[in-house]
Design a protein around this nucleic acid. Structure first.
Lengths: 177, 177
DNA sequence: CGAAATAAGGATATCTTTTGTCCTTGATAG
DNA sequence: CTATCAAGGACAAAAGATATCCTTATTTCG
């Protein structure tokens, strides 16, 4: 059997996908980057601004907090702010804070099941297949490590319509404690 | 709140992960690469060699078949063989045949929920966040596109113990139709 | 021709992960 | 003192991954 052209897309249209919380966290950090010094923005405001479920967004923000990327404050006028300048915060840090640090390829070492293999056989190094897949993972990480939050803010400040940029800034300021 | 050092690993130790079928498909292709011209190896043999559930492995091989990476043959002495030389078959092709071609980052365009946004507002270009994430995806793909199946075979032929290499080859030959 | 082996693939079951809600606790500002 | 906040535990629903079983059409071999 053979098909002409690229793979027929059957049940295989679903790919490994990052959690939606990663998208949420990145957008939230972009907003926090515009916050004046010493002020905080609450989960409620961030959820409302992005049209997201507040309780679930909270889990993503807790991830950022546990990773030390944001500072938090309790009580009225509390919320989140960045723990360091946007120029020192990378995409990779944000992604990993929410999604974790595990590789996308997990080696289950199926070479060990080879029936020709002596029982006491011991592998010297990780499986070659895994090493290659891990290199691709590292290329992905390297790319994200090279992008700072300040880069995103720079792009947005050019792309977003000036009126929208301004009104959004004011919207946030009204709610920042 | 702040924690010293890297992210605390809580429930976040699970990362987006490729299907185990990707690993299986790569190892199976490595075996098929050593098959003499015109011969086929069955799902049954591939499953037994790698210690995998035959019926489920079959789904992965069907993915390879639908993508045109392997040829199949029915009946006794039937099975799979590569549809092209190992030097022309990339890791990316194999991974995508099983896992699909979708990006790891899905943009749900949450910027559209911005309450400051006019209702008739229309975006010119994809979200900047998505574009950055997609560049990382492309770096991952580029890396896998650069690795040929023949590269893997080359590494394995050097790393695998010569006796094991030889006995495995013979094991496969005995079962190849 | 008939029997055995094969790939293709549909139907179904189970387990894990993702997504989301609800509630309690302790801290803080006004 | 009260309202508001983050942290986080418990729980539920939906989606995806990991299988297993069965049917169908095809091919080889005796």
């Amino acid at each position: 059997m053979s098909l002409i052209g690229p793979a027929k897309i059957g049940p295989w249209n679903k790919f490994m996908i990052l959690k939606s919380q990663v998208e949420w966290a990145l957008h939230c950090c972009a907003i926090l980057a515009g916050l004046p010094d010493g002020r905080y923005l609450s989960t409620k405001a961030l959820a409302e601004f992005h049209g997201l479920p507040k309780e679930y967004l909270s889990k993503a923000l807790q991830g950022l907090s546990q990773a030390g990327l944001v500072d938090t404050s309790l009580g009225p006028s509390g919320g989140y702010r960045l723990a360091k300048p946007p120029a020192e915060l990378t995409f990779l840090e944000i992604v990993e804070a929410v999604e974790g640090r595990q590789r996308t390829f997990v080696c289950t070492n199926i070479r060990a099941n080879n029936p020709c293999r002596p029982k006491d056989h011991c592998e010297s190094s990780p499986c070659a297949v895994a090493r290659i897949m891990w290199e691709a993972d590292e290329a992905w990480r390297a790319k994200l490590r090279g992008v700072k939050l300040s880069d995103l803010v720079g792009i947005l400040s050019q792309e977003v319509a000036p009126e929208l940029w301004k009104s959004s800034f004011e919207w946030v300021l009204e709610r920042a404690g």
